[in-house]
Design a protein around this nucleic acid. Structure first.
Length: 517
DNA sequence: ATAGGGTTAG
């Protein structure tokens, strides 16, 4: 194997001095071409990853590449930090560079095209990625397992199970034998679409086919269980694996920590965090962000901020995720000065903001009552090519509600629904605003006209009905909330109970209390 | 290639 590789390299080496010069000239030419692709931003972040350096700029693609030292073969390795609308154009440029390379005698290989497919799948879409296959074949290169695995990952990214299965079938038809990663990706796809049973069947398939599962296989299973609400199964699998000598990775811990946090199992989470520290792993930025989020959720602000400081000390905090978490928590707790300071730091670091960070900032402006500034910032985000999402709409609707622009809020809410965004949170904001301005009956009318409600919807109405001394209706709503298996606030229960007994219906109060338990 | 951020009631 090593020998054939060496022979290939020698074959590519220049035979004469003149040939050598020509080759250097060609490489120079190609490098210039490459420089043209990645020059116009100069963000200057350099990361070491895989085989080569990744240069990241602000607005443009970022490529990592490696030269096989003597040979003129090259790889485009990984594209990252694309800006979505520019991505297609940049990928076309990259493909043009490949064609140029062929003309200059620098031949692409299957890795080159696999990289391109990954890029198209990630930044444009599955179809764009799949279309590369034809051009790849035209260039005389046969797809391999990695090609199809990349396409399966692309299909999974856009929640397309049919495409994912198609790729597996096409792979089999071509006589390519799927590997662990093909099955890992298929499993991930099933889990993502909320089909844990099918995913589990894929795992059995892996074992039946005598393929040995890798760490990622188990991580995907644990994550899939967690995300589908089977956290106890995930924990059981985790413990079972440990008993069999499996040493969990930091990723495994992060998956479990996050879902323990989301299911409010704080104590178990802290215990697992201790275990992580004892295991000799170093917590990474993701671990810290998760733990921080947990602290903020239990209202332990001081502890959360201490973790943020620890992150900063270790050099992890130069990360938009952690800043958004902290700013979000500070905003919620109403610490204006701290929020402003934190945002100033975040801006100073100068990272390219993504939609989540813009949303954080837009929410900040809304909370400050500067709706106009919020809308201006939204324009900036859109000009930079970010698409607003359900969070953006919800934040703006909430901002409009809080500013008293109920009519505009309602129009925006309808607009949001028409665009196909999930709007329950925005709906809750709207209901709450209607109650606050005294349109309780209209709020109830809107409430009854829809099927999707959650504990927030009920809580707003119950709270405001109590304030209006309409205890019987409040009790009725609270009970139907409990009947549907939703969480209720203790404060709401107390308010209803107190109201019922104060208004003289002791019997109602007693019955209500019984039903609550 | 598997893990983290941003929206609502009190």
């Amino acid at each position: 194997m090593a020998r054939t590789h060496k022979r290939r390299l020698t074959a590519l080496m220049p035979r004469t001095v003149a040939a050598g010069r020509r080759m250097i000239w060609r490489q120079q030419k190609w490098k210039e071409k490459f420089a043209d692709l990645s020059s116009d931003g100069g963000g200057g972040r350099i990361k070491l990853r895989g085989r080569g350096l990744i240069f990241s700029g602000h607005h443009q693609l970022l490529f990592s590449f490696a030269y096989l030292s003597i040979s003129s073969n090259w790889f485009l390795e990984k594209t990252a930090f694309f800006e979505a609308p520019k991505a297609a154009k940049q990928l076309e440029k990259a493909e043009a560079a490949i064609i140029d390379g062929i003309r200059l005698g620098v031949l692409p290989d299957v890795v080159t095209y696999n990289t391109l497919i990954t890029g198209y799948c990630q930044f444009v879409g599955f179809d764009a990625g799949y279309s590369v296959i034809h051009r790849m074949k035209e260039a005389g290169i046969t797809p391999d397992v990695v090609t199809y695995n990349s396409l399966m990952a692309g299909a999974t990214r856009q929640h397309s199970l049919p495409h994912c299965l198609d790729m597996l079938e096409e792979m089999l038809n071509m006589g390519i034998i799927p590997d662990v990663w093909s099955y890992n990706t298929l499993m991930h796809c099933f889990f993502k679409l909320g089909k844990p049973d099918e995913a589990y069947r894929v795992f059995h398939d892996i074992l039946l086919k005598n393929i040995s599962p890798c760490q990622a296989t188990y991580n995907i299973m644990i994550n899939g269980f967690c995300k589908n609400g089977y956290i106890h199964n995930a924990l059981m699998l985790f413990r079972n694996l440990q008993r069999h000598g499996y040493i969990p990775e930091i990723v495994t811990y992060n998956i479990l920590l996050n879902s323990l946090c989301n299911s409010r199992m704080w104590k178990d989470m802290m215990r697992l965090f201790e275990e992580l520290r004892e295991s000799g792993h170093n917590p990474n930025a993701i671990t810290y962000t998760t733990i921080m989020k947990c602290c903020f959720r239990c209202k332990r602000f001081k502890e959360g901020l201490e973790i943020f400081m620890e992150m900063k000390r270790k050099g992890y905090a130069y990360d938009l995720f952690s800043y958004c978490t902290v700013v979000g928590a500070l905003l919620k707790s109403g610490r204006r000065q701290d929020t402003n300071n934190c945002i100033a730091h975040m801006i100073k670091i100068g990272y390219e903001l993504d939609m989540a960070s813009y949303n954080t900032l837009i929410n900040w402006h809304c909370k400050e009552g500067k709706l106009e500034t919020a809308y201006n910032l939204l324009n900036v985000a859109e000009e930079r090519g970010e698409d607003c999402d359900k969070y953006t709409h919800t934040i703006l609707i909430n901002g409009l509600c809080k500013a008293g622009d109920i009519d505009v809020a309602q129009r925006h809410l309808n607009h949001m629904k028409l665009m196909g965004f999930d709007s329950l949170v925005a709906f809750n904001c709207f209901i709450n605003a209607l109650c606050k301005v005294g349109h309780l009956d209209y709020a109830l009318q809107v409430f009854h006209s829809t099927d999707t409600k959650d504990s927030f919807t009920y809580s707003s109405l119950v709270h405001n009905l109590c304030k209006a001394k309409r205890y019987r209706l409040a009790a009725k709503l609270l009970l139907s909330c409990i009947r549907d298996g939703m969480r209720t606030l203790k404060a709401d229960q107390r308010a209803v109970l107190k109201g019922l007994s104060l208004t003289g219906s002791k019997w109602d109060a007693k019955k209500f209390k019984q039903k609550c338990e």
